[in-house]
């Protein structure tokens, strides 16, 4: 089994209203050098090894875990 970490974020072309509000709060706390706050999702899972492993991870991301109309995804595999 491999441990897989999937990161899902809103596409850069979409306004991340949540990120904007959090960025405003950080500025208010005095962290004025903070920009580009984007809030996304993080999913952990274990996936069976095999020649199709990466193909299956991408398929799962594209079918269900991310909505490619509004989101981008990337993943890491920890062997």
């Amino acid at each position: 089994m491999a441990q897989v970490k999937v990161y899902i974020t809103l596409k850069p072309s979409l306004l991340d209203a949540q990120g904007k509000v959090v960025q405003g709060a950080l500025h208010q706390l005095g962290y004025e050098g903070v920009e580009q706050v984007r809030i996304g999702k993080y999913i952990e899972m274990t996936v069976a090894d095999g020649p199709q492993r990466d193909a299956h991870i991408m398929e799962m991301c594209e079918k269900l875990l991310a909505n490619l109309v509004i989101e981008d995804y990337r993943y890491e595999v920890i062997e």
């Binding site: 809103l10 979409l14 306004l15 209203a17 949540q18 509000v21 909505n67 109309v69 509004i70």
Partner: peptide
């Protein structure tokens, strides 16, 4: 219906949060 691709586009969080 949007998630099912019966309609295009998507619905996201309201601007006002």
């Amino acid at each position: 219906l949007c998630e099912s691709h019966l309609l295009p586009g998507a619905l996201v969080r309201n601007d006002g949060q």
